[in-house]
Amino acid sequence: MSTATPTFSGGAPTPGAVASAAWSRVRTWRPGLVLAGLVLLFFVVAAAVPSLLASGSPTDIDLRGALRAPSLEHLLGTDQNGRDLYTRVVYGARESLLIGLGATALSTSIAVVLGVSAGLAGGIADAIINRFLEVLFSFPVLLLALLFVTVFGASATTQIVAVGIGTAPGYARLIRGQVIAVRDSGYVEAAGALGHSYARIVRRHVLPNAMRPLVVVVTLGVGQAIVWASGLAFLGLGVAPPSPEWGALLDAGKNYVQKAWWLEVMPGLAIVAFALSVTTLGRALQARLEGGTER
């Protein structure tokens, strides 16, 4: 996944001190970050109180007004049942975000348990957990998810579990590596030499230091989980209609892609905007936490 952080290179304004001052202000403002924040705010409000942003109901049908192109009356057009697409995108935010956050929370929980156990225990336990992770790794996320949905049926819960389990091994490995690095570090050794108990060392030193990179990865993961979940829904394996979950909107729109482009493009843009915003903020967070400057 790429980042939306704007890069300013070449062609930068050179003539005059005014321009240069403005330029440095822009740099400190970081408009990309501000924009990402606004987009995120919009979707968080949409998820929390959708009626603030859209007045109608996402399931109100109007057969005479079906498949209308975007206009002032219908900002994003209408679908095959004459439902207002803007309203549906707004109301779809809650389920989409819940699936993204839920899947990430699940995968992180699994990953923390497995990664920390493997890293701390070492030896046979580490080897067993590692092999287990490798087995999980050998199943591409999408296939694991397909298997899940085929057996358990399509629902938001299945999507959360499928994507959550599918993405857990990556996080688990990351945590295990961090735990090992911290465990073998000088300051942990020093703490041990000072006579601190094992539990205290783990609690005070190992866990906080090992988890820090996870914060960034998880932020990035939310966007990615939404993309995965939308992918599943696009294949018809998402939540049941008439839910306006974004992936489900994509799925319903694909048959009209030649005659009513907005049904496919608009929900797609919502997914892209959200995923990019989360990623942008994740990168900024990463830069802050690592203490370096943002690229």
């Binding site: 296939l143 298997l147 960034v216 990865v217």
Partner: peptide
Amino acid sequence: MPSPLSPTASAPLTARLAAAAA
């Protein structure tokens, strides 16, 4: 930073799942 997601090659298993369903 390592990506937590591995690239996918989905076609063969999809086909197998379809066959299982079949």
